[in-house]
Design a protein around this nucleic acid. Structure first.
Length: 232
DNA sequence: CCAGACGTTGTT
DNA sequence: GTCTGG
DNA sequence: CCAGACGTTGTT
DNA sequence: GTCTGG
């Protein structure tokens, strides 16, 4: 999973906590972020271990060795992160936090697919665990991109989907961003399903289905599926 | 050794 | 670049 | 993830 | 059906 999320508040919090200066792009809330779009990401930069970079990156990892950007990777399985050739070199040094405050999954009932939004119960923003990379376009200009780590679902997500994105516990965010931490064995314990009792989910408008709809309408609780079943 | 892949999800 | 498959 | 397209030639 | 774009 994890092919759509919301990001309306976490940035300032992360900037404060990690001493990041104002970015050179506008901070605008996003209600329906989709793969292949640009999203703000806080990354560990191996060349400047004492600082964190906040920049817009393309959702859909294009590995540095790629010949073209034709096959972006939007998710990475936590279970095999340290083994896959494409990821094992990124895990030690190219981790990132992807700020968010909700994500969407589609519940399947027959052929009806109802979008649901999952958030923390306390409504606080959070961060997905991500990996990023830099690819060089044919013209030599850098292209920054990231992927979101997924894991097995907790009991809140499980009725809807067989995977869920990794939400880092707030107390684990600093470790995920610490360039001094390079041991996969120290990192993989962070990539667990988020505690179910701290999460909730609710149905939202089918407006979410189109990535072109990037408005607060995507956040509003919706009971529309019931009206579809109503008979005169 | 060289050639070719390097990823996930969902759906049937 | 680095791993896998042949 | 969903929505929407699914093509070629020649010319600049 | 399958790929691309958002």
């Amino acid at each position: 999973m994890c092919g759509r999320y919301t990001q309306t508040a976490k940035l300032q919090d992360l900037m404060d906590r990690f001493g990041i200066e104002d970015p050179d792009f506008e901070l605008a809330p996003r209600y329906n972020l989709a793969p292949s779009q640009d999203a703000p990401v806080v990354g560990v930069n191996p060349k400047t271990p004492d600082t964190r970079t906040l920049r817009l990156m393309h959702w859909g990892l294009v590995p540095y060795h790629a010949k073209d950007a034709a096959k972006p990777i939007i998710n990475a399985r936590a279970e095999t992160l340290g083994q896959r050739p494409a990821f094992r070199n990124l895990l030690p040094r190219r981790r990132c936090l992807v700020p968010a405050d909700g994500f969407y999954e589609w519940r399947k009932e027959g052929r009806v697919r109802t979008p649901m939004r999952f958030t923390l119960r306390n409504g606080e923003p959070f961060a997905f665990a991500g990996l990023w990379d830099r690819w060089l376009r044919p013209d030599g200009t850098p292209f920054y991109s990231f992927t979101i780590v997924t894991t097995s679902p907790n009991s809140v997500i499980e009725p809807v989907h067989n995977r869920m994105p990794v939400l880092l516990l707030p107390e684990d965010e600093a470790k995920w961003l610490d360039p001094a931490v390079t041991d996969p064995a120290a990192l993989s314990p962070l990539l667990k399903p988020y505690p179910a009792d701290l999460m909730r989910g609710y149905c939202v408008s089918r407006a979410v289905n189109s990535p072109a709809n990037d408005s607060p309408e995507c956040l509003a609780p919706d009971e529309a599926p019931l009206t579809l079943l109503r008979r005169p």
